[in-house]
Amino acid sequence: MQNFLVSILIPFKNTALFLPECLDSIISQTYQNWEIIAVDDHSEDNSLELLISYAKIDERIKVIKNTGQGIIPALRTAYSQSSGILITRMDSDDIMKPSRLKTMADSLAKTGVGNIAVGQVRYFSGTGISNGYARYEAWLNRLTEKGTNYSEIYKECVIPSPCWMVFRKDFDACGAFSPNRYPEDYDLTFRFYEKGLNVIPCSEVLHLWRDYNTRTSRTSEHYAQNYFLNLKLYFFLKLDYKTKRPLVIWGAGFKGKNVAKYLLKKDVDFVWLCDNPKKINKKIYGQELFHFSVLKELVNPQSIVTVANEQAQKEIKEYLNELNQIAMQDYFFFC
């Protein structure tokens, strides 16, 4: 296999407690042709000093300061200073399994440009993992094992961040870190999908996700649910919505209402369906709600399903399949 240089981009802020484990896991990789571009996002602890001490020992580690504020400017800064043929990210509080870089680099060397290497992930925490995170991990790994990640892209981020690797050429074609859209990992996933990068299946756990109360994804407003939903709708209207087909919303709960508000602001017409007798024939935001049987009267509709209940989702999917509708063409689950 070819021995491509891998650029590992690491934004960091106040993670001194976890940085040694993170950096040691990279240094001990079985694949050694790498460089670290670590960008300090205005840390207030001794994270910067710790990185500098590592850089003095290993010349493959470069440490610079963020020219802006926040994770996206930090990633842009890191990428601008990178030299690798292959690009990957790393969070400063996580841990790489020893074979992560080799597994990914070998996969890309074998398949070439137009592909994205991913790996399975595992959460770990000193206080235990919640049922929600355990379910997300299992769901994500199921998709990654088959390389079918895009098949459920509107549910949640389907490329395990930061456990991905691509050729620089493909990364540039996807826009790298140019957009100012959060959550930035989910936005990048949608751009991988938009450019048609093939996901290489992986059955091996390559990355360990650390969970703790002050983790950025738990505390930053940029990872609130409204950001996720707005991002889904932005890319759905851009990539998969067919303007000449009737658009349908399934469900009038919290998420369904927010989808409706977004579409109304964008002047996108839609038919609103539900099976709640208390809501059928009522109006919300001036839009009447209809029984789901109305779907049969529509010609070639597209559906956004916002119903969260798993049993209800199963029943909706069976109903849509009976109508010969196809997932990711005719209907899209947003939960």
Rank of each mutant, 00 (worst) to 15 (best):
N180V: 08
Y182Q: 14
P183K: 01
Y186R: 09
L188G: 05
T189A: 11
T189Q: 03
T189K: 00
F192Q: 07
E194T: 08
E194Q: 14
E194G: 03
K195G: 07
G196W: 03
G196T: 09
N198I: 15
N198W: 05
V199M: 08
I200V: 13
P201C: 06
P201K: 00
C202R: 09
E204T: 13
L206A: 13
H207R: 05
L208R: 07
W209P: 05
Y212V: 14
N213F: 03
R215E: 08
T216S: 05
T216E: 14
H222M: 07
H222W: 00
Q225L: 08
Q225A: 12
N226Y: 05
L229S: 13
L231Y: 04
K232S: 11
F236W: 07
F236L: 00
L237D: 04
K238Q: 11
K238C: 02
K238G: 02
L239Q: 12
L239R: 06
L239T: 10
L239E: 08
Y241F: 10
T243G: 09
K244E: 13
R245C: 09
P246G: 00
I249K: 00
W250T: 12
G251M: 06
A252V: 12
A252Q: 14
G253H: 02
G256A: 01
N258D: 11
V259W: 00
K261N: 11
Y262E: 09
L264D: 14
K265E: 15
D267Y: 09
D269S: 12
F270N: 01
P277I: 03
P277V: 02
P277Q: 09
N281F: 14
K282R: 15
K282F: 05
K283P: 07
K283L: 14
Y285H: 15
Y285F: 15
G286F: 04
G286I: 11
G286Y: 04
Q287V: 15
E288R: 11
F290N: 06
F290G: 01
S293C: 03
V294D: 00
L295T: 11
V299G: 00
N300P: 14
S303N: 10
I304F: 10
